[in-house]
Design a protein around this nucleic acid. Sequence first.
DNA 1: TTGATGTAGTTGCATAAACAACTATATGCC
DNA 2: GGCATATAGTTGTTTATGCAACTACATCAA
Lengths: 146, 146
Amino acid sequence: MPNNQFKKGELYSFITGKASTAIARRLQKNFKLSGLDITIEQWSVLYHLWKEEGQSQQQLCDATFRDKPSITRLVDNLEKLKLVKRVPSKEDRRINLIYLTKEAIQLQERSMEVANQTLNEALNGVTNGQIEIAKEVLHTVYENLK
Amino acid sequence: MPNNQFKKGELYSFITGKASTAIARRLQKNFKLSGLDITIEQWSVLYHLWKEEGQSQQQLCDATFRDKPSITRLVDNLEKLKLVKRVPSKEDRRINLIYLTKEAIQLQERSMEVANQTLNEALNGVTNGQIEIAKEVLHTVYENLK
DNA sequence: TTGATGTAGTTGCATAAACAACTATATGCC
DNA sequence: GGCATATAGTTGTTTATGCAACTACATCAA
């Protein structure tokens, strides 16, 4: 597929990711309306810890597609909020394993509901078939560039 | 379409916009490799000014889907880089009209080439039909939430 | 004409990202 | 064992975002 030439008008919104910005803003707003006092970036870290606790910061980097300084500071802030704890690994003293506090565990259900609801708002009027194709395209883009 | 329920594994990447993050990073990297010393956010403002100079900051807010403080500061930085100039409107003294400098005009061709090339890297292996559907979905999402 | 309301832009503050440089620890090879 | 190299995490700096509060100017209506 060597020649995907884009007309200018089409190029811009693909590159700037207006849709994902819009989703992020709406999710943040919906968190706030639901009384959830976390940022979407913090939520994205918690999301992976809910799936599996005790991951290293490097594993969180890979999972969230962020660099190491970003995860250092997100974990800093999550620690200040008393949502996670750094626990030094006994096998490898370079590694911090990140564990959830009770408060963080309690956030899971409500925040996942808000996230699901936000996605339904976003995809209102889009068919499941279209969603499948969009997901494939976004996945391919990610694989092409990551 | 009231019931687009998502399986958890699918929810995350849609919300976090990993694909658009990947595109943004690659574009920034490609700018740098081509010796273009601007951020993608600055580029996104210039993009709209290349289409039409002399827009107000508010028009740039609408065009780039950013809030007013973001545009204020992007224009600040573009002015420091001597790529744009604020010109007070004569009809409405609240308004700044933003004009390009010669240097900015010269950036257009090269940067648009880099952007097009980046998008081709991103969409390698994706058919035009899939791209059309993905664009529709992203556009609907944007319209649903903006 | 003046007073209320709306709009354009700026500033302050907290959070986050990208990149480079750094420390500490682990690993692999001689 | 000891040195080179790789890996995990931190810190500093610049740029950008989101929100709230603010100033200046415009508009509309009594």
